[in-house]
């Protein structure tokens, strides 16, 4: 070994080693240089994949763009107002609100409940925790396809079970009926992401020392009071953060809805992202689609700002 390394070092003049060491230590000792060094790659990537497309889309939304005509026709910002005023946009926006907030409410309730459940100490708790997190690893496409199979009115297992148990008399095409399609898509699209909430909440739950519960017990607290006074204050912020992230992501959700219903039946599940897709790739009105996307961005940005102001999820719980 020593022979090899001796030979290698002998090939490199010793002053080179020294210079590179000096250079490195100078970089690491200077906080500002180190910061620049660490931040630049991430920042460059961010500008490339996030900022530039966003600016591009905003710019695009000010023109009439056709896939067949290479000439962009200036329409100006008035176009955005036209979009907002249009009935189809408003309807899609309403459905987005229903889908977004409904899904998130579902995810929070299911996710937090699941976290509380697997946080308990029992035999096989570690396995249960691992299993609970499994759905997060299944791709949305697979979930959508499997969901379609399971919900099918002719051969789906869900109809079969519901009829056998006696809840239903006749099979129901959950995804085919305007009354049930939205709720069904919300549930199927959410169970995977409920696990995301579980993941965050569980990490927080595990950090609550047991003696806080014992202390509350000795003060005379029952199970609900312990949840209210010990658990909830400590997981409140993580739930708020999870809710914000999930809302942003669910508003932009495209894949699961597209796979399961393509926005149908009729337009009952056409949310803003599906509406934008429709406008862009079926009607080839790229400028308008970009405008819809831009409006969506503005709405979500405003909503995040309001949310941070009101809910203050960044405020950590005071720890004694």
């Amino acid at each position: 070994m020593s022979v090899v390394s001796d030979r290698v070092t002998a090939l490199v003049p010793s002053q080179w080693w020294q210079r590179s060491h000096e250079l490195l230590s100078r970089v690491f000792e200077d906080d500002r240089r180190l910061l620049a060094l660490c931040l630049t790659p991430a920042l460059a990537l961010y500008v490339l994949v996030a900022i530039l497309p966003m600016v591009w889309a905003f710019n695009l939304s000010l023109y009439e763009v056709s896939t067949l005509n290479p000439v962009w026709e200036w329409t100006g910002p008035g176009r955005l107002l036209d979009i907002v005023a249009s009935g189809t946009f408003q309807a899609a926006f309403g459905r987005s609100l229903v889908f977004g907030f409904g899904s998130v409410a579902f995810q929070i309730v299911v996710g937090v409940s699941l976290a509380l459940l697997v946080n308990r100490e029992f035999k096989g708790a570690v396995l249960a925790r691992a299993l609970a997190l499994l759905p997060y690893m299944v791709p949305a496409v697979a979930i959508g396809m499997v969901g379609q199979f399971m919900l099918n009115a002719q051969y789906g297992i869900i109809n079969l079970v519901l009829i056998r148990v006696g809840i239903l008399n006749n099979p129901v095409a959950f995804l085919g009926l305007p009354e049930t399609a939205m709720a069904t898509v919300m549930v199927v699209g959410s169970w995977k992401f409920a696990v995301f909430v579980t993941l965050l909440t569980l990490a927080r739950l595990q950090s609550i020392p047991e003696n806080f519960y014992e202390g509350a017990t000795m003060c005379g607290a029952n199970a609900y009071q312990k949840f209210r006074d010990v658990t909830l204050p400590r997981i409140k912020n993580v739930i708020l953060i999870a809710a914000l992230l999930r809302t942003l992501w669910m508003f932009n959700k495209f894949d699961i809805i597209y796979i399961m219903t393509r926005g149908g039946p009729g337009e009952t599940t056409t949310t803003i992202p599906l509406h934008a897709y429709e406008v862009a790739f079926n009607q080839y009105r790229l400028g308008e689609a970009a405008g819809i996307a831009a409006l969506m961005f503005v709405f979500l940005a405003l909503w995040s700002i309001v949310y941070f102001r009101v809910a203050r999820p960044e405020e950590e719980v005071r720890v004694a």
């Binding site: 003696n211 000795m218 607290a221 004694a320």
Partner: peptide
């Protein structure tokens, strides 16, 4: 069960509620 024994317990690790003020902590029972 412990909550029905009406005993007071003081722990080694002080288990005060960080989100409650001192008076709320004292009057928690």
């Amino acid at each position: 069960p412990p909550q029905n024994r009406n005993l007071a317990f003081v722990f080694q690790d002080i288990t005060l509620y960080p989100h409650m003020k001192v008076w709320e902590n004292i009057a928690y029972p």
